[in-house]
Every structure is written in structure tokens, then in C-alpha cells.
């Protein structure tokens, strides 16, 4: 044992690269893999736009509230959903696949810091989300004449809601991958959960028209707060009157998203594992 403790590599070997350096390389890798997966790209970019087109066709020029067009209202929900899809859903399902294929086993054998892996996922999510939202807002503005905010304050709100939302989504996607088991189970379970959450959170239906118990359940999860935050960006100020509390309640939005982010990190740290089978 004492002999073991003094064992040194013959000819000093430099320290392995830091988590940050490997993480940076992984961002590049994740983006490249994302680009080469036509299904992922199509789903991430087309899905929100298709939803916008569907809602536009159904509700047309209807107003949700005085001065609030249905496009405007649902754009907020779709943007929030888009963030959830590119973060939580895509990360959760991708990790289950990577684990099953043996990619994660390779990373384990290389002694990859889990942080580097998470950085790679987060980087990919940020780029994919930014591209998706740009496309969505572009289509909304050009094809549906949805007025985009002109003041910096609203864009700042947009920025922090998106940022907190996608970071929380990423860590929750990593966290959930520890519990879903097979890639098949993840591919069915995670999107299924996401769809139910979308109904509860006012993405498909005006939130204030949902039954009270659904609103209360939704308030536990991040998506409801992201849609509400997005409404505060895209809807006129007096539309806050149709919110449950009659205000945009940015404080609660930030608090709930941050709480999920922190909880997600804690769960990841405690449960993340490279391999699916028994240790």
C-alpha cells in the first residue's frame, strides 16, 4: 500500500486537459453531430414553425383578449415550448441513446469530467435554441405580422427567460436521463411528458381558460413560467390583466426557473452515470 502511494509515472506526464477545454471541444462535437442528424434539425426548427402555422390557420384574426391577437398569444407559448424541446427533450432523449450505444462508456474510459460533457450539451442547446427562436420570430414577424418588441427592456426579459429556461431544461434533460432507462423508453416517455406539460401550461390553450387545478399543477413546472415570461415580452402591458395574478410576476418566474436549475444540478451531480447497467 505504501509502495502504491509513491508510484509515479515514468517521465513526468503533463496533467490531462481541463474540463473547460474538453467541454469546448465537446460543444464543437455536439454541434457537428446535431447538424448531421436531419431528424433532430428538422424537428427542432420546423416543429415550432409548423405549430405557429397551425394556430394561425385555426384562430386566424381572432383576439384572445382585447388588443391581443391569437398569433401573438400563441407565439409566446410556442417560443417557450421551443426552448423546452431543444433543451429538455432533445438532451434527455440524446443521452439515453448515447448511453445505449456505448458513447458514454467511451467517455468514462477516457476519464472525461462529467462537467465537460454537460458543457458540450449546454453549448449545443444554446446554439440550437438561438437558431430556432430566430427562425420562429422571423416567420412570425414576416408571415403573420406579429409585432416584435421594440424596447430593450422586453428583449432583456426575453434573454433571461430564454437563458434560464434553456439551462434549466438542459440540466433537467441530463437529470431525467438517469431515470428513463432505455433509449426507447426515453424516446416515448420524454416527448409524451412534454406534450402533457404543454397542455397544462397554456401552450395550446389560453392559460387563463384552463381549470384551476391544471393551472396549479402547471405552476409547479418551468414551462408555465416560461410561457408567462414570453407573454410579458410579446403581449402589450395591459394583457397582464388576464394572468392569474393580474401581473407578469417576473419575480416568481425567475425564482421557479432558478429553483429548477439548482434542483436539476443537484440531481445531476447525485445521479448522473455513464453506463446503464449495474455498477
Amino acid at each position: 500500500m505504501t509502495a502504491a502511494a509513491t508510484d509515479e509515472p515514468v517521465g513526468r506526464r503533463p496533467a490531462p486537459p481541463s474540463a473547460a477545454r474538453i467541454g469546448r471541444a465537446r460543444v464543437g462535437l455536439e454541434l457537428r453531430l446535431f447538424r448531421r442528424d436531419p431528424g433532430q434539425v428538422a424537428f427542432s426548427f420546423a416543429y415550432p414553425v409548423v405549430m405557429l402555422v397551425i394556430f394561425g390557420s385555426i384562430f386566424g384574426e381572432e383576439e384572445v383578449a382585447p388588443g391581443v391577437g391569437s398569433h401573438q398569444y400563441f407565439l409566446a407559448g410556442i417560443a417557450a415550448t421551443g426552448v423546452m424541446l431543444t433543451s429538455f427533450q432533445s438532451v434527455g432523449t440524446a443521452i439515453a441513446e448515447e448511453r445505449e450505444r456505448g458513447d458514454l462508456l467511451r467517455l468514462q474510459t477516457l476519464g472525461t469530467p462529467a462537467l465537460a460533457y454537460a458543457i458540450g450539451k449546454a453549448g449545443q442547446v444554446v446554439v440550437a435554441t438561438a437558431a430556432q427562436l430566430t427562425l420562429l420570430l422571423g416567420v412570425a414577424a414576416l408571415a403573420y405580422d406579429v409585432p416584435l418588441p421594440e424596447d430593450a427592456g422586453r428583449w432583456a426579459t426575453f434573454a433571461w427567460v430564454v437563458l434560464l429556461g434553456m439551462l434549466a431544461g438542459t440540466v433537467l434533460g441530463i437529470a431525467v436521463s438517469s431515470f428513463v432507462g432505455s433509449a426507447r423508453a426515453a424516446g416515448a416517455g420524454i416527448p409524451g411528458f412534454a406534450v402533457v406539460l404543454q397542455f397544462f401550461s397554456g401552450v395550446f390553450i389560453v392559460f387563463s381558460e384552463l381549470p384551476g387545478w391544471m393551472q396549479q399543477v402547471a405552476a409547479v413546472f418551468p414551462l408555465k413560467w416560461m410561457t408567462q415570461g414570453m407573454r410579458s415580452v410579446f403581449l402589450p402591458d395591459d394583457a397582464a390583466a388576464i394572468e392569474p395574478t393580474g401581473t407578469w410576476d417576473h419575480g416568481s418566474t425567475a425564482l421557479v426557473l432558478a429553483a429548477w436549475l439548482v434542483a436539476g444540478v443537484l440531481v445531476c451531480v447525485r445521479t448522473f452515470h455513464w453506463r446503464g447497467d449495474d455498477r
Binding site: 490531462p16 477545454r21 453531430l33 448531421r36 456505448g102 458513447d103 467511451r106 474510459t109
Partner: peptide
């Protein structure tokens, strides 16, 4: 380690795969 079930992903080329994993080592 060369395991039985490790994988290096599918969508990269051989050269890209090797270039990527070079980032993980000291030497």
C-alpha cells in the same frame, strides 16, 4: 481501454473522431 461495448459515435469520419478524442489526453 478498448472495451467490447464502447462506441465513438456514428456520424463522424474516422479522422474527425480521432481529432476529437485527441482533446482528452495529456500526451
Amino acid at each position: 481501454v478498448v472495451g467490447q461495448r464502447t462506441s465513438a459515435g456514428d456520424a463522424l469520419t474516422v479522422a474527425e473522431t480521432i481529432a476529437h478524442y485527441a482533446h482528452y489526453h495529456a500526451l
